[in-house]
């Protein structure tokens, strides 16, 4: 029995080793660096809280962090709300060829992520599809400027880019629901709407939670979308972190901002899971 579990651990060890080297160690180094200070091209390697006091005293960092969280929150809500009816349609209304519908949904996401984001620049830009299309149709006399380079264009682009990540988990959880439960609810006199609210929605909640996390966590740190379609008003915390490791050359401050972002995102996620857990209890 002992050699049995030893064999199990030895099968697991190469993966664990890669994860310790590439995940645990870098995170420890990141936290260590956040307590150092940048000194031109080198670091002052003594413990200091300067980066954290900078983070809390200059309002810009906290402001942009919360703006990023608000934008990602909006993206998450929009993506999940838009995806839910689609997933519901495939799970309950499509009788044959469900797979065709699922493939149909994933096809647009085979294009490179960068190009998918860039596609929105083509759509919304000053000389973009919407403006040049409306101009040549004679609906507009001059191009609309407010379409691109603002937080809204970032939210739209992200909601589009992450759509598949929301549909698939919700679809899986809807598909798993035992259809006889729905029939039972109808037989016991609930109408379609109440059956949805009291049976379908609570049972699909795990999929909604998974979808929300799959969209929320990566979009908070996204750097590409705000850089391409956000403009100065649409920047997010990922762009600040990137600039600390690029032009601004202040790695320790960048590390501190990353640590604070990670803590904030983790807290938000815990709050969200706790909230949905309570909601589920109340419904049940």
């Amino acid at each position: 029995m002992k050699s049995e579990s030893l064999r199990g651990y030895s099968l697991l060890s190469p993966t664990l080793l890669a994860m310790v080297l590439g995940l645990a160690m870098p995170l420890v180094v990141l936290i260590t660096l956040s307590f150092w200070i940048q000194d031109y091209l080198d670091f002052i390697r003594t413990f200091s809280l300067k980066n954290y006091t900078d983070f809390f005293q200059k309002p810009i960092y906290i402001k942009i962090l919360f703006k990023s969280i608000r934008m990602s929150g909006l993206v998450t809500i929009a993506t999940v709300l838009l995806a839910y009816p689609m997933a519901y349609f495939i799970a309950f209304r499509v009788k044959h060829n469900k797979l065709v519908w699922l493939i149909l949904i994933t096809v647009p996401f085979w294009t490179s992520y960068l190009l998918r984001v860039f596609a929105w620049k083509i759509m919304l830009g000053y000389n973009g599809v919407i403006n040049s299309g409306l101009l040549s149709l004679g609906i507009l006399s001059e191009p609309l400027e407010f379409l691109l380079y603002n937080p809204t264009s970032v939210v739209i682009t992200l909601a589009h880019a992450w759509a598949a990540f929301a549909i698939l988990p919700i679809y899986v959880s809807l598909e798993k629901i035992d259809r006889s439960l729905l029939e039972a609810s109808r037989d016991l006199g609930e109408n379609v709407f109440m059956t949805f609210m009291r049976v379908t929605l609570p049972l699909s909640l795990p999929g909604v939670i998974a979808a929300s996390l799959l969209v929320f966590i990566p979009t908070v740190g996204d750097y590409v979308t705000p850089a391409l379609v956000g403009g100065p008003r649409g920047i997010m915390i990922g762009n600040i972190i990137q600039s600390m490791f690029g032009k601004a050359l202040n790695w320790p401050l960048g590390a501190a901002i990353s640590v604070m972002s990670m803590i904030t995102v983790t807290l938000m996620v815990c709050l969200f899971i706790w909230g949905t857990h309570n909601f589920r209890k109340r419904v049940a």
Partner: peptide, 29 residues
């Protein structure tokens, strides 16, 4: 049957729930 299977698997899954930019800069450091 491995002891600590749950935590070990969660540890391996961490890259799924961490913003990529943070993974990138910590590896860079």
């Amino acid at each position: 049957r491995l002891r600590g299977r749950g935590p070990l698997v969660s540890f391996i899954m961490i890259p799924l729930v961490i913003p990529e930019i943070i993974l990138a800069i910590s590896l860079l450091i």
